[in-house]
Measured scan of single mutants.
Amino acid sequence: QNEKLANELKSLLDELNVNELATGSLNTYYKRTIKISGQKAMYALKSKDFKKMSEAKYQLQKIYNEIDEA
């Protein structure tokens, strides 16, 4: 289960640069939040902690959705 979550989180991290570029014309909230979420996700992957990875995955998905809707 950890392996599956780690792969999903890696996949979301692969999209980080594209989504970060998409924040160029948006409010600074999005820029700041996506950077923080990305850092948390990288830390969670290194720690291999299921709870941290779950939270990081949720945060990344949430900010990606917010950027898409903005």
Results as ranks from 00 to 15, higher is better:
residue 67 I to T: 02
residue 3 E to I: 09
residue 54 S to L: 14
residue 20 E to K: 11
residue 65 N to A: 13
residue 62 K to A: 06
residue 16 L to E: 00
residue 31 K to A: 10
residue 46 K to I: 12
residue 18 V to A: 12
residue 58 Y to E: 12
residue 70 A to L: 08
residue 32 R to V: 13
residue 63 I to M: 03
residue 43 Y to W: 12
residue 44 A to D: 00
residue 13 L to M: 05
residue 22 A to L: 14
residue 25 S to W: 09
residue 67 I to Q: 03
residue 24 G to R: 15
residue 53 M to G: 00
residue 38 G to N: 03
residue 9 L to F: 01
residue 46 K to A: 14
residue 47 S to Y: 05
residue 57 K to R: 07
residue 7 N to H: 11
residue 4 K to Q: 11
residue 44 A to Q: 01
residue 35 K to W: 12
residue 58 Y to N: 09
residue 44 A to H: 01
residue 66 E to Q: 09
residue 16 L to G: 02
residue 35 K to H: 08
residue 26 L to A: 04
residue 36 I to M: 09
residue 30 Y to C: 07
residue 62 K to T: 05
residue 33 T to I: 13
residue 70 A to H: 05
residue 52 K to L: 15
residue 43 Y to H: 09
residue 46 K to R: 10
residue 38 G to S: 12
residue 19 N to L: 15
residue 59 Q to I: 10
residue 27 N to P: 14
residue 19 N to C: 14
residue 28 T to H: 13
residue 11 S to M: 13
residue 23 T to A: 14
residue 9 L to P: 01
residue 11 S to E: 11
residue 59 Q to L: 14
residue 37 S to R: 09
residue 55 E to V: 09
residue 67 I to W: 03
residue 22 A to C: 10
residue 62 K to N: 05
residue 66 E to I: 06
residue 48 K to V: 03
residue 1 Q to D: 14
residue 49 D to G: 02
residue 58 Y to R: 10
residue 68 D to G: 11
residue 31 K to M: 07
residue 57 K to N: 03
residue 36 I to Y: 08
residue 29 Y to E: 04
residue 64 Y to W: 06
residue 27 N to C: 14
residue 48 K to D: 05
residue 65 N to Y: 07
residue 28 T to C: 15
residue 39 Q to Y: 10
residue 6 A to Q: 10
residue 65 N to Q: 12
residue 38 G to W: 14
residue 27 N to F: 06
residue 62 K to W: 06
residue 69 E to G: 08
residue 3 E to V: 06
residue 54 S to A: 12
residue 47 S to D: 04
residue 49 D to F: 02
residue 54 S to E: 13
residue 35 K to L: 10
residue 8 E to H: 03
residue 43 Y to G: 07
residue 16 L to P: 00
residue 44 A to F: 02
residue 58 Y to V: 10
residue 7 N to G: 09
residue 10 K to L: 10
residue 41 A to H: 01
residue 16 L to Q: 02
residue 28 T to W: 14
residue 63 I to S: 01
residue 13 L to W: 03
residue 40 K to N: 10
residue 37 S to N: 08
residue 44 A to I: 02
residue 1 Q to R: 13
residue 52 K to A: 11
residue 15 E to P: 01
residue 69 E to N: 10
residue 56 A to W: 03
residue 30 Y to S: 04
residue 32 R to M: 14
residue 45 L to K: 01
residue 64 Y to P: 00
residue 3 E to D: 09
residue 1 Q to W: 11
residue 42 M to N: 04
residue 63 I to T: 04
residue 11 S to W: 08
residue 47 S to K: 06
residue 55 E to L: 09
residue 67 I to M: 04
residue 12 L to Q: 00
residue 44 A to E: 01
residue 31 K to E: 05
residue 58 Y to D: 11
residue 51 K to L: 11
residue 69 E to R: 12
residue 24 G to M: 14
residue 65 N to V: 06
residue 8 E to N: 02
residue 32 R to Q: 09
residue 29 Y to H: 05
residue 21 L to V: 08
residue 62 K to Y: 03
residue 9 L to D: 00
residue 70 A to S: 05
residue 12 L to K: 00
residue 39 Q to G: 04
residue 14 D to E: 11
residue 31 K to P: 02
residue 63 I to Q: 01
residue 53 M to S: 00
residue 19 N to E: 05
residue 20 E to N: 08
residue 23 T to F: 06
residue 8 E to C: 13
residue 22 A to G: 04
residue 56 A to V: 02
residue 26 L to D: 03
residue 40 K to E: 06
residue 36 I to A: 09
residue 9 L to W: 02
residue 19 N to P: 04
residue 34 I to M: 05
residue 28 T to A: 13
residue 11 S to H: 10
residue 4 K to W: 08
residue 2 N to Q: 13
residue 3 E to R: 08
residue 25 S to Q: 09
residue 56 A to E: 01
residue 36 I to H: 07
residue 67 I to C: 04
residue 56 A to Y: 02
residue 18 V to S: 11
residue 10 K to Q: 10
residue 32 R to G: 04
residue 30 Y to M: 05
residue 52 K to S: 07
residue 50 F to E: 06
residue 11 S to V: 10
residue 33 T to H: 09
residue 38 G to H: 09
residue 39 Q to L: 12
residue 9 L to C: 03
residue 21 L to N: 06
residue 68 D to N: 14
residue 55 E to K: 07
residue 49 D to S: 06
residue 42 M to I: 12
residue 24 G to K: 14
residue 24 G to Q: 15
residue 34 I to R: 00
residue 16 L to C: 05
residue 4 K to M: 09
residue 41 A to Y: 02
residue 44 A to R: 00
residue 12 L to F: 02
residue 65 N to L: 10
residue 9 L to Y: 01
residue 1 Q to A: 13
residue 52 K to F: 05
residue 10 K to M: 08
residue 56 A to Q: 00
residue 24 G to E: 15
residue 14 D to Q: 14
residue 57 K to T: 05
residue 11 S to A: 13
residue 55 E to N: 06
residue 61 Q to A: 07
residue 14 D to C: 12
residue 11 S to I: 12
residue 30 Y to T: 03
residue 8 E to R: 02
residue 67 I to E: 01
residue 60 L to K: 01
residue 62 K to Q: 10
residue 40 K to P: 00
residue 59 Q to S: 08
residue 2 N to G: 08
residue 70 A to I: 06
residue 56 A to H: 00
residue 52 K to Y: 05
residue 13 L to R: 00
residue 12 L to N: 00
residue 42 M to L: 13
residue 32 R to W: 13
residue 4 K to A: 11
residue 10 K to P: 01
residue 46 K to H: 08
residue 54 S to Y: 09
residue 10 K to D: 02
residue 34 I to Y: 02
residue 33 T to F: 09
residue 19 N to Q: 11
residue 2 N to H: 14
residue 49 D to T: 02
residue 69 E to P: 03
residue 37 S to I: 15
residue 25 S to C: 14
residue 63 I to V: 06
residue 28 T to P: 14
residue 17 N to K: 14
residue 17 N to G: 12
residue 54 S to D: 05
residue 16 L to A: 01
residue 67 I to R: 02
residue 58 Y to G: 06
residue 70 A to N: 03
residue 29 Y to S: 04
residue 51 K to F: 08
residue 37 S to H: 11
residue 19 N to I: 15
residue 22 A to D: 04
residue 29 Y to K: 05
residue 20 E to S: 09
residue 39 Q to D: 08
residue 67 I to V: 03
residue 22 A to W: 08
residue 70 A to Y: 09
residue 57 K to A: 09
residue 36 I to W: 12
residue 8 E to A: 06
residue 7 N to K: 13
residue 43 Y to C: 13
residue 22 A to S: 04
residue 35 K to V: 08
residue 54 S to V: 12
residue 41 A to V: 04
residue 26 L to V: 03
residue 32 R to T: 11
residue 60 L to Y: 02
residue 51 K to P: 03
residue 29 Y to N: 03
